[in-house]
């Protein structure tokens, strides 16, 4: 395949960026999207030009490190991560625009690499269950009904990639946050801190500069793990109950 790539290049956090056009030839449809970029980078290196910086680590769709806006869609046209997107999803001769996640809460570090540490700060605010090492009771002492366990699991599948924020017209982090609140809120272990957790997390989310949610649903569509919108509903309900002291 031959492709035209328009890639966002930006030297550093404070530098100006722009879209630069590259042609790549002889791309195999079996390549992953990032392997296609590897090919481009090898060529740039050979030409003495600096390669395009982009994040990836596991390249099997689980670490959440990769993430590109590909022709206007977070992680591209398939329901998967950028690293698991393959070139057979594109047409020969196609022009592909590649941009970083754009959200003020995710400042650009370089080219396609952004800083998602705001997600860590949301987790720091309350995305945990306070249990000290060694103080846990026997695992079977806590029974969890299967429906709750299953819903907790679905929410816990979030890989923290940030595609939800990237896709949301409001650059909102609600799907990510809702996933954590739902994961911990479905479990008996998560109850004692439930009211505190949601308030602290929402406050941090807003403080980090994410937008609010107007229930548009792009986030869930872009989410490679298919985190459903109902986690946002749970998040909202938790906040409402925490506010009105009804937990």
């Amino acid at each position: 395949m031959n492709l035209t790539l328009k890639i966002w290049r930006q030297d550093g956090p404070k530098a100006r960026g722009e879209l630069v056009t590259y042609q790549v030839a002889d791309i195999s449809p079996d390549m992953s999207f990032l392997e296609m970029l590897d090919v481009l980078n090898e060529r740039l290196n050979a030409e003495g030009k600096e390669p395009v910086a982009f994040d990836s680590d596991c390249r099997e769709g689980i670490c959440g490190m990769c993430g590109l806006m590909i022709s206007g869609e977070a992680h591209g046209p398939e329901k998967t991560t950028t690293c698991q997107l393959h070139m057979r999803s594109f047409k020969d001769g196609e022009t592909i625009t590649i941009e970083p996640w754009r959200a003020d809460a995710f400042p650009i570090i370089r080219d396609l690499v952004v800083d998602r540490s705001a997600f860590d700060r949301i987790i720091q605010a309350g995305g945990f269950i306070s249990v000290n090492t060694g103080s846990a009771p026997d695992a079977e002492a806590i029974l969890v009904p299967k429906p709750n366990a299953d819903r907790a699991f679905v929410a816990a599948e979030c890989i923290g990639c940030g595609a939800c924020v990237a896709a949301c017209p409001n650059a909102s982090g609600m799907l990510f946050m809702g996933a954590k609140v739902t994961h911990l809120g479905e479990l008996p272990q998560g109850q004692p801190e439930r009211a505190m957790r949601v308030q602290a997390m929402v406050a941090t989310h807003d403080g980090a500069g994410f937008g609010g949610c107007t229930n548009i649903g792009e986030c869930s569509h872009a989410c490679p793990k298919g985190i459903p919108l109902d986690v946002i509903s749970t998040l909202n309900a938790d906040l409402r109950k925490a506010k009105s002291g009804r937990f």
């Binding site: 945990f128 269950i129 695992a139 969890v144 299967k146 907790a152 699991f153 272990q189």
Partner: peptide, 17 residues
């Protein structure tokens, strides 16, 4: 024990075990 207390969602049976 530690992981369950932290909320790790291990697979469970219908009885909750």
């Amino acid at each position: 024990d530690q992981c369950v207390a932290q909320g790790v969602p291990f697979a469970r049976e219908y009885g909750g075990l």
